[in-house]
Design a protein around this nucleic acid. Structure first.
Length: 754
RNA sequence: GCGGGAGUGGCGGAAUUGGCAGACGCGCAGGAUUCAGGUUCCUGUGUCCGAAAGGACGUGGGGGUUCAAGUCCCCCCUCCCGCACCA
């Protein structure tokens, strides 16, 4: 019963191949391994090892994890990365009968085996001329005969005397090559014949079954039907091994009629051809129609059915670390995992002498993971009463990955002192509940880096959906709006030997860069100690103060863009803060110069426009343009002969507070306030001041600005046209000629067409 | 190959819906203040022609739509990021 349940449990023990990183001394999730087979953290080699580890059944949520992206206000790039990672593709599973006896030596017996394949192109079933299994596919040993069938192509055997030695040699060879080596081989197709044949259910012909590493055990069923005419990989394999290429979809007219003369496979649409037998004909149908027709045919004969496959794999959830949440799991004397009853929770980490992970040489493939908690012998052994009397159990010694905590911290933050539940349902609904304009619910704004796209952000969504299904949260998604801030980049400099030179030593001459006289090459990338281009915040605090640094970083450009650091530019924001101070404070006496009288009309209007603009820029996280508007306002104030009005000064300080909190608080106190400005609302723009009575608009002749006129904001087109045509500069340029057409955009501009 | 994003002065970057390209800052130039210094102040600063007035050109390249294009459409180039033998 436990075994059956384990097939469906959210958390389960698996002994499938996992990612083992000897240098880190722990196993890793697929998401933590880079495409070249190294650890995301530390960039160490990672090896596939068959180990018993805890898994989370995230694949059960694949569909919803893709579909619910629609609900989210997230950057397209992140959504695309998640879709791509989950990798849903719809197609069909098709069953092929294995025929080990066909054409084989007389000591072979017919196989009962069925080879199931996943295909997105069931319409091309008639063109399947061979099959390929992943090298580690469990059926391989079952279907392979003991000797080569008569007249086996010598190119298919890998030079081996019999199928089992060919298979063994191919597997050994595949295992010895790293991901990087395989990629470096330029994807030349390799493989060997298994000696077995299979029956193409549509044509009734026997087709050879190969193993090849271009078919992955981890995707689909780990087996494919190969249609070389219409799949590029199969095409290349067929060319290498001299396999037949049968056309079943008509390519465009400029393609050679005979597939033997094709340069590539034809993967596009076209009328299906050569696809008929006694009970079905697909000929003449489009690809889509043929898919539908063959699916029905397969289902009627119980040979296949439509299905969906994803690239996403279950989440490897155990780590060999001390610092992680211990599993609430014990094993009985039979080694069966049992959940600890709630009354015994939480399981706390034991105090141990040595917390450090057991690590190995980076390339030590045969090393075995060792959990630090396994050193806590006393803690491991525990006596519990599971309802059948006290018994001895052994604790699980693996711990959860760092992601476990980040999957729900945002929920705990809502109600951090609650001792009864992790979050009160009412509290959760208040902060995170779905609303008509945000059906996903979740955190209002989550600012974070792209590096979490298919790690934290995927895991947390999965975890949240589990809690949602269990009724613990009302929101289907944890983070309603996501904003990716860019990186602060910096130039790094390498000399001829490729050694990084300290960025502080660099001099520029005639567009080239030199370090102590040596020519160096400049690159733009992240800051880092090893790149010798990091900027120490302490130095900037020392020279300019924390407010200046903060203001500079916000002013550099849009928040979501990566931007190059330029120490030289920091001074601009420092100067601004000095000018700001002097607009409100007498430098010599230190006394406030602000007056209580109302500002002049121009200043009042500029203030209103600034408040309005800064407010919307802040809402859109456009801090760079907020700052520009605040500088403009201050520049205006410094040009005034008169002292600054209190109403203007206070609004300015309040608007600056989120950007330069220290200077703002200081000025706020000097303006006579006892309480922090944190509790004062953001200024409101006077709507009456946002609309001017008159505006200056350009007058264009043939699209070029030739004059400017003042017009009332509510002036109609005719009045504006008359004003424009009466302008002396326009009269002179027209020189008596009658305009062919005059376009007037009220309160915006005039364009005269000659 | 697939997916995402970006190309605007010497530099970082502005420019809601097509409507004055270059806001704001750096740098640079000239000037001011100062015994001096600059982490001070003021003025100027897209490019080219011109003493000036003014004119021409100008948002990666090429076409197009429009009275009007950085913005819309078509083709192309370059760069960055993610995934990559996913059947």
């Amino acid at each position: 019963q436990r075994a059956v349940l384990a097939e469906h449990r959210l958390a389960y023990v698996s002994d499938a191949p996992v990612n083992w990183c000897p240098a880190l001394g722990t196993v890793l999730a697929n998401e933590e391994v880079t495409s070249d087979g190294r650890s995301e953290r530390g960039n160490y080699p990672v090896f596939k090892r068959k180990l018993t580890q805890w898994m989370m059944r995230i694949t059960a949520f694949s569909e919803r994890l893709i579909d619910d992206l629609e609900l989210l206000d997230w950057p397209d790039a992140i959504k695309a990365m998640q879709r791509n990672w989950i990798g849903r593709s719809t197609g069909a599973q098709v069953d092929f009968a294995a025929l080990t006896s066909r054409g084989a030596a007389s000591d072979h017996t017919p196989s009962e085996a069925t080879i199931s394949v996943f295909t997105t192109r069931p319409d091309t079933l008639f063109g399947a001329t061979y099959m390929v299994l992943a090298p580690e596919h469990p059926l391989v040993d079952e279907i392979a005969p003991t000797s080569w069938p008569a007249s086996t192509n010598s190119a298919w055997t890998g030079g081996a005397a019999d199928p089992s030695s060919a298979i063994a040699a191919y597997r050994a060879d595949a295992a010895s090559r790293s991901e990087i080596e395989r990629q470096a081989e330029g994807r030349t197709k390799t493989g060997v014949f298994t000696g077995a044949m299979a029956l193409n259910p549509t044509t009734g012909s026997a087709i050879p079954v190969f193993i090849a590493d271009y078919v992955l055990m981890g995707y689909g069923t780990g087996a494919i039907m190969a249609v070389p005419a219409h799949d590029q990989r199969d095409f290349e394999f067929a060319r290498t091994f001299g396999l037949p290429v049968t056309k079943v979809v008509t390519p465009p007219e400029n393609w050679p009629n005979d597939p033997a003369n094709w340069e590539t496979a034809w993967g596009g649409d076209g009328p299906v051809c050569g696809s008929a037998n006694d009970s079905i004909s697909l000929d003449g149908l489009s690809v889509d129609d043929a898919k539908a027709a063959i699916s029905t045919w397969l289902e009627d004969r119980r040979l296949g059915h439509p299905t969906v496959t994803t690239k996403l794999r279950d989440w490897l959830f155990s780590r060999q670390r001390y610092w992680g949440e211990p599993f609430p799991i014990v094993y009985d004397t039979d080694g069966t995992p049992i959940a600890i009853p709630e009354s015994e929770l939480p399981v706390l980490l034991p105090d141990i002498e040595d917390y450090s992970p057991r690590t190995f040489a980076a390339d030590d493939q045969v090393s075995m993971p060792e959990a630090p908690l396994a050193r806590a012998e006393e803690w491991m052994q525990v006596t519990l009463d599971m309802g059948d009397g006290p018994k001895a159990y052994r604790r699980e010694v693996n711990t959860m990955p760092q992601w476990a905590g980040s999957c729900w911290y945002e929920l705990r933050y809502l109600d951090p002192t609650n001792d009864d539940v992790f979050v009160d349902p009412d509290v959760e609904r208040y902060w995170m509940g779905p609303t008509p304009d945000r059906p996903s619910g979740g955190v209002d704004l989550y600012v974070g880096g792209v590096e979490h796209a298919v790690l934290h952000l995927l895991y947390a969504r999965f975890w949240h959906k589990v809690l949602f299904d269990l009724g613990h949260v009302s929101s289907p998604e944890p983070f309603g709006r996501l904003y990716n801030q860019g990186y602060i980049l910096a130039h790094s400099y390498t000399d001829e030997r490729g050694v990084y030179r300290d960025a502080l030593t660099i001099e520029e001459r005639d567009g080239s860069y030199f370090s102590d006289g040596d020519l160096v090459t400049r690159e733009l990338g992240k800051m880092g100690k090893s790149l010798r281009n990091a900027v120490a915040p302490d130095d900037l605090y020392e020279s300019y103060g924390a407010d200046t640094l903060r203001l500079y970083e916000m002013s550099m450009g849009p928040m979501d863009a990566s931007r190059p650091w330029a120490t030289r530019d920091v001074v601009g924001m420092y100067r601004f803060l000095q000018r700001l101070w002097r607009s409100l404070v007498d430098e010599d006496t230190g006394n406030l110069t602000v007056v209580d009288s109302e500002p002049d009309a121009g200043t009042a209007r500029l203030l209103a426009r600034t408040i309005d603009g800064v407010r919307s820029d802040m809402e859109g996280l456009r801090f760079n343009t907020s700052i520009a508007k605040l500088i403009e306002l201050n520049n205006h104030l410094t040009k005034l002969a008169a002292p600054v009005s209190r109403s203007v000064a206070e609004s300015l300080v309040l608007m600056l507070a989120p950007l330069v909190p220290h200077v703002s608080e200081e000025l706020w106190a000097m303006l006579g306030h006892d309480e922090s400005l944190t509790y004062v609302p953001f200024p409101e723009a006077d709507p009456a001041l946002l609309v001017a009575d008159e505006v200056e608009i350009p007058v264009q002749i043939k699209g070029k600005v030739r004059a400017r006129i003042m017009v009332a904001v509510d002036a109609d087109s005719a009045a504006i046209e008359a004003l424009a045509l009466a302008d002396p500069a326009v009269v002179a340029l027209l020189d008596g000629a009658a305009p062919r057409k005059v376009i007037v955009v009220p309160a915006k501009m005039v364009n005269i067409v000659l």
